[in-house]
Nucleic acid binder design. Structure first.
Lengths: 140, 140
DNA sequence: CTTGACCTTCCCATTATGGGAAGGATTAGG
DNA sequence: CCTAATCCTTCCCATAATGGGAAGGTCAAG
């Protein structure tokens, strides 16, 4: 199977398939004419990678998961550990984003949002790091 | 003021200050010896940028916000619109992450996480895109 | 005058992805 | 059998924002 078909069947672009090969994530056999050649199991691997990517794992993590998948005797503990770490990472990032959203919502709530120019949002951006001096005017 | 002091006072690294100048976000005057020279208002601008970055705005958005800050007659509506868009963007991304976390938690909950090798997490990664055939074994 | 702490520019790396060019291979239609 | 379209190949570039580090100029303190 040519790279184009492998791409269609796996949902991974041909560009990315070549890239994954370049970084050593996957391998590909070549035909006499130099074309890469893929079979069903290659497509399965690509689908596996795609699934991990869709779930937010990095290619590095995808690589580890792939190794675990290939090792039929791996303890499931290792897989679960990677998944749990990723969950914690996502939850930490969500907490950070939530804090930012709270801040921005508060600011936006106090902004008229009309033709008037006074704006507590910009005031905050300008004053956030200042200790006690009067509210900064836009310099220059 | 040298770039090092501007960096300390603004919380923006010297490296980034130079980069912001390179992409046209800020400007800097030079002294006779070629050193960049900053004053209080430059520091204020850097602090403003830092605040917007901390709140997750892109440098592109930071640029727009900076322009609005400098334009004392801008309608606050425009600022609020940018902020609201950013809030929506963050909320959309959080929803996506939350869905991923839900999926992963469900998978992890069903994984023994011990010495046994069978693992529903990897099973899902391998089977997610398949229609009806039996669960895939790791190819090759 | 030397030494150390600055500053300058320039290049490289990161992460994952896409765009596009130049040129060779294959395939379908006539 | 020839030609055009559609593949494939490699190579280079760009993205966003940041840091690392080298080579070399400058400045201030001793």
């Amino acid at each position: 199977m040519n790279i184009g078909d492998a791409a269609k069947r796996s949902g991974v672009s041909a560009k990315m398939i070549r890239y994954y090969e370049e970084i050593g994530l996957i391998k590909a056999s070549r035909r006499a004419n130099g074309y890469r050649d893929y079979d069903e199991s290659d497509v399965s691997v690509l689908q596996f990678i795609r699934r991990t990517r869709d779930l937010g794992f990095s290619l590095d993590e995808a690589s580890s998961l792939l190794a675990l998948w290939r090792d039929r005797k791996r303890p499931s503990r290792e897989v679960k550990r990677l998944a749990s770490q990723h969950i914690e990472d996502l939850e930490r990032r969500m907490r950070e984003m939530r804090a930012v959203v709270r801040t921005l919502k508060t600011l936006a709530d106090h902004c008229h949002g009309d033709e008037r120019s006074d704006c507590p949002i910009l005031d905050d951006f300008a004053a956030a790091t200042m200790k006690k001096s009067a509210r900064k005017r836009p310099p220059a």
